[in-house]
Amino acid sequence: MILSSATFIHVGQIHVDRAPGAISTVLGSCVSVCLFDPRLQLGAMNHYLLPFWNGNGLQSPKFGNIAIPKLIEAMLQHGASLQTMQAKLFGGASMHSLGGKSMMIGEKNVLVAREILQEYNIQIVAEDTGGQYGRKIQMDLERGKVLLKYTSSAQTEG
């Protein structure tokens, strides 16, 4: 099912929404953490490019270790609780076209998500990461499900 009301997010954005909304994005070596609180039908998604902030420039959620705590904080602010919050993890492909393999950006992006989610004791209930293809995902907040499709080429950015 296609939800026309889906909010599309870019790199560095964080979006929180409630049912019947939907949040979508397109990922290459980037990673999106999707959080969902079934009790409230409340969900949030981020989209980050690199695992770590290097201390330069603004502390923008383009970096995993900024984007994930901020995502969790945003959920808590909207009334979600850590006990009922579930996480799903997507992206982190090795994009050859971007020389991603040698830097292992995708892998590191996934690793940082696992580490931080574990720290907060948030369970990862589903994930689809790695590989060589980009992904398009859409989080349906009515059902708390994430729809996923692979790109047909290894050319996707982000």
Partner: peptide
Amino acid sequence: VACGSNEFFFDSFDDAIEL
């Protein structure tokens, strides 16, 4: 910005995997 091909971008989620 995050999308290489528009065809893919506007593609439906009809046969998508559900997780």
